[in-house]
Computed example of a mutant assay.
Amino acid sequence: MMKWIPVALALTLSACGSGPKTAYYQLPTVTPSTAVSSSTLARPLWVERVTVPDYLAGSGVVYQSNDVQYVIATNNQWASPLDQQLQQTLVSNLSATLPQVLISSTPLGQQHDTLKVDVSGFHGRYDGHAVVSGEWVLEHNGELFKQPFVIALPQKDDGYDALVRTLAAGWQQVADQVANAMIANGK
């Protein structure tokens, strides 16, 4: 019986010594404030790509700890690549806002508009804000419409859960900007 005490003690200590568990995050789809309906918005939209810089392309959620330093979390990670999540969520958010428009992440035949989004910031910040920044380009009937965006929303709570929810709300604002531009330009 005494032979097993060291083994049991070693197993107990190794179980206690394991590091923090890794949490995985998926962007939620935020319900738009209003859906827009218009018979003039019938042309399909291809969300061609959403690009992110290298520091956001990894699996860790990013937090800016001061004016020059960024920390990439090791235990708080994206469940799937961030660029894919951003594209899928953008398609979903735009589809909810513009229900009469066919919006897809794949090409839709010969006649479609194209949206490209370059994200430069998608992270938490030391002052308690979530930052969503970059620019989007909408191609409609051979014309290009380009719009930068910089959104800094205050987090309501502390922690990564609240950060991801706030980032999703900022991403919904980008979808709203795109939808409004499509309507204004007579998509």
Score class of each variant (00 low, 15 high):
Ala42Met: 07
Ala42Ile: 12
Ala42Asn: 13
Ala42Pro: 00
Arg43His: 03
Pro44Gly: 00
Pro44His: 04
Leu45Tyr: 03
Leu45Glu: 02
Leu45Gly: 02
Trp46Leu: 05
Trp46Ala: 00
Val47Arg: 11
Val47Leu: 10
Val47Glu: 04
Glu48Cys: 01
Glu48Pro: 05
Glu48Ile: 01
Arg49Tyr: 14
Arg49Met: 12
Arg49Asn: 14
Val50Met: 11
Thr51Val: 13
Thr51Asp: 09
Val52Glu: 11
Val52His: 10
Pro53Phe: 11
Pro53Gln: 06
Asp54Ala: 12
Tyr55Ser: 02
Tyr55Cys: 09
Tyr55Leu: 06
Tyr55His: 11
Leu56Asp: 04
Ala57Gly: 10
Ala57Asp: 14
Ala57Phe: 08
Ala57Lys: 11
Gly60Glu: 11
Gly60Phe: 06
Gly60Val: 07
Val61Pro: 04
Val61Leu: 03
Val61Ile: 15
Val62Glu: 08
Val62Met: 07
Val62Arg: 08
Val62Asn: 02
Tyr63His: 02
Tyr63Ile: 06
Gln64Lys: 15
Gln64Leu: 06
Gln64Gly: 03
Asn66Phe: 06
Asp67Lys: 01
Asp67Leu: 00
Asp67Pro: 00
Val68Asn: 07
Gln69Asn: 12
Gln69Asp: 12
Tyr70Arg: 15
Val71Ser: 11
Val71Glu: 14
Ile72Gly: 02
Ile72Met: 13
Ala73Ser: 14
Thr74Ser: 13
Asn75Arg: 15
Asn75Ala: 10
Asn75His: 12
Asn76Lys: 07
Asn76Leu: 01
Asn76Trp: 03
Gln77Ser: 04
Trp78Ile: 10
Trp78Val: 11
Ala79Pro: 02
Ser80Phe: 00
Ser80Lys: 07
Ser80Ala: 07
Ser80Trp: 01
Pro81Phe: 02
Pro81Trp: 02
Leu82Gly: 03
Leu82Cys: 09
Leu82Lys: 05
Asp83Leu: 10
Gln84Met: 01
Gln85Trp: 02
Leu86Ile: 08
Leu86Lys: 04
Gln88Tyr: 09
Gln88Arg: 10
Thr89Trp: 08
Thr89Gln: 15
Thr89Asp: 11
Leu90Lys: 12
Leu90Thr: 13
Val91Phe: 08
Val91Leu: 09
Val91Ser: 08
Ser92Cys: 05
Asn93Met: 15
Ser95Arg: 14
Ala96Glu: 12
Ala96Gln: 15
Ala96Val: 06
Ala96Trp: 14
Ala96Ser: 15
Ala96Asn: 13
Thr97Gly: 06
Thr97Met: 14
Leu98Pro: 12
Pro99Leu: 13
Pro99Tyr: 14
Gln100Ala: 14
Val101Lys: 09
Val101Phe: 00
Ile103Arg: 00
